[in-house]
Amino acid sequence: MAKPAEILPGTLDMLILKAVSLDPLHGYGVLLRIRQISREAIDIPQGSLYPALYRLEHQGLIAAEWGQSENNRKAKYYKLTAAGRRRLREETAGWKRLTSAIDAALNTSSLEES
């Protein structure tokens, strides 16, 4: 198994928002979903997951509700709020701009080409 990529600071919130944007998830589910949608490339440290969830809930970007898990247990489910959706859009756009800019910068082979 390849060593999971270190997550960049500030990207955890974005990843969580993305994970819960698809459908409501409990905390452990968020962990699995991020691993899944990053094709096992990103493994977020479990200790920082819950503080992040609480912070996002506090900011009103996600909302929590108790529900039933797949194996009929009580679990706390998080879903994206309207504000969260907005934030995710902004962050995604921002991230794309940043990465394409960095790509462009890193792909430059000689000064003449640019």
């Binding site: 905390g27 819950y50 898990s69 247990r73 706390k76």
Partner: peptide, 8 residues
């Protein structure tokens, strides 16, 4: 919530 996480 944390208990649930550990169990899962």
């Amino acid at each position: 919530e944390l208990e649930f996480h550990i169990e899962q």
